[in-house]
C-alpha cells in the first residue's frame, strides 16, 4: 500500500536569471510501514522535495505534479487551512541541527506540551490551573520521552534548549514529531551534524519506531552507508533527478545506474584491505551549480558511460519495482530488457 505517491513532481524556481528547474520529474512511492531512504549529495534537492510535500515552499517556487497523494488526501489541492491540519497530525518532520529548531526562550516542557493532541478549550485551561490534570500532561510527556529513549526526563523537561546536547535535542524533536502518531515521519538529515555514537542511537530509535509502532519514515541523507542498513527502500537523487529507486536488496546487489555504482563503491569496507595511501573512489567533477544545470541527464558531464544520447532526458524504466532512469543502465542477465514492468 502506497502511503505517499508522488508522480512527476517538478519544482521551478524563478530567479533573476530566469526559471530554473531544480527538481525534474521526480517520482516517489513510499510503502506503508517501511523506511524509505532518499540519498543524495548536498544540494541535490532532497530538502526541496520534503518542503514541497509539506507545502512549506516560498511563493516564487512553482510546484507541479501529476500525482501527490498521501493515502487518500491530494496534497496539491489542499487549502492552507487543511494543510495546516494535516501537518503535525498526519505528517511530521524532523530536521538537521535540532537545537536551532527548538524555541530558545521556552522550556522543553512547554514546547512538547504545545504539540500534544489538542484537548478541548476548557480542558486546556484547566490543565494549567488544576494540578491533577496537569499531572496527566506530565505523565504523557514522560512516557513520550521514555519512548524516544531519554532516561532522565525530569532534568530534560525543565531545561532550555541551549542546555542540552544535540543528541537529546534530536530525541526531543522526534518525541514532538511522534506525539500525535503521524502516518509519515520525514527525517531531513537528522544525524548529519552528530558524532557516530549518537547517530547510532538515533537510527536505532527510528528503527524501533518503525518496527514497534508501524511508522512510515522517509529518511533523507547524504551518507549512503549509514542508511543503507536501515532502509527498506532506497531512492537516489542527483541534481534534482531521481536516478534509481528500488528495494534495498535490489539496489545493493544489482545497482544499474552509474551513479549508484559510484555510491556503493564509496562505502569504505574495512574488511578488505585498503591500500596504504590509495585513492578513495569518487566520480570526477562536482555537482553543477543551479544556474548551470546540464541538459537532459544531469549526470552527463561526470558519468563514465556518457554518450551523445545523454543530452536527452532518459525515461524511467521499471524492472519489478527497481526503477531506473538511464540510457545505458548496467543490466543483469536475469533482467529482460524488453519487458519493462509498469506498475
Amino acid at each position: 500500500m502506497a502511503l505517499l505517491d508522488i508522480r512527476n513532481l517538478s519544482i521551478d524556481i524563478i530567479t533573476a536569471q530566469g526559471k530554473i528547474r531544480v527538481i525534474d520529474k521526480a517520482n516517489l512511492n513510499i510503502i506503508d510501514g517501511s523506511i524509505h531512504g532518499l540519498v543524495g549529495e548536498s544540494g541535490s534537492g532532497k530538502s526541496l522535495i520534503a518542503k514541497a510535500i509539506l507545502g512549506l515552499h516560498n511563493e516564487n517556487w512553482i510546484v507541479t505534479a501529476d500525482r501527490m497523494f498521501l493515502g487518500n488526501i491530494d496534497l496539491s489541492k489542499l487549502s492552507s487551512r487543511a494543510r495546516r491540519k494535516i501537518m503535525g497530525t498526519e505528517i511530521a518532520i524532523i530536521f538537521q541541527n535540532p537545537r536551532s529548531y527548538l524555541d530558545p526562550s521556552k522550556k522543553i516542557f512547554d514546547q512538547i506540551r504545545e504539540v500534544l493532541p489538542k484537548k478541548s478549550h476548557h480542558k486546556r485551561f484547566f490543565s494549567k490551573v488544576v494540578p491533577k490534570l496537569r499531572a496527566s500532561e506530565q505523565q504523557i510527556i514522560k512516557e513520550l520521552l521514555h519512548k524516544v529513549g531519554v532516561q532522565n526526563d525530569q532534568a530534560v523537561v525543565q531545561s532550555y534548549p541551549y542546555e542540552l546536547s544535540e543528541g537529546i535535542c534530536q530525541k526531543v524533536m522526534i518525541a514532538m514529531a511522534i506525539a500525535n502518531n503521524p502516518r509519515l515521519l520525514i527525517a531531513d538529515e537528522p544525524t548529519t551534524s552528530m558524532e557516530a555514537v549518537t547517530q547510532a542511537q538515533i537510527f536505532r530509535l527510528l528503527y524501533k519506531l518503525n518496527q514497534l509502532h508501524n511508522m512510515t519514515i522517509l529518511l533523507l541523507s547524504n551518507n549512503f552507508g549509514s542508511i543503507s542498513n536501515l532502509s527498506d527502500y532506497i531512492s537516489l537523487i542527483y541534481c534534482g533527478q531521481i536516478v534509481e529507486s528500488g528495494s534495498y536488496k535490489q539496489i545493493v546487489n544489482s545497482p544499474m545506474h552509474p551513479y549508484t555504482q559510484a555510491m556503493i563503491k564509496t562505502i569504505i569496507e574495512f574488511d578488505d584491505g585498503v591500500d596504504h595511501k590509495g585513492q578513495l573512489y569518487t566520480l570526477p567533477g562536482s555537482i553543477p551549480p543551479a544556474n548551470q544545470l546540464p541538459i537532459g541527464c544531469r549526470l552527463g558531464p561526470r558519468c563514465p558511460k556518457a554518450q551523445r544520447t545523454c543530452v536527452s532526458n532518459p525515461e524511467a524504466v521499471n524492472y519489478k519495482g527497481h526503477i531506473i532512469r538511464c540510457h545505458f543502465p548496467q543490466l543483469d542477465d536475469k533482467k529482460d530488457a524488453n519487458t519493462p514492468h509498469n506498475k
Binding site: M87, G88, F95, L102, D103
Partner: peptide, 22 residues
C-alpha cells in the same frame, strides 16, 4: 527567518499562534 519558526510551522500552528507564542 529563524529555524524554530519553520519548525513551528510544521507543527501545524496558525500564523497568529506562532507570532504570539514564539
Amino acid at each position: 527567518k529563524s529555524n524554530y519558526i519553520k519548525a513551528a510551522h510544521t507543527k501545524g500552528l496558525t500564523r497568529w499562534q506562532i507570532v504570539y507564542r514564539h
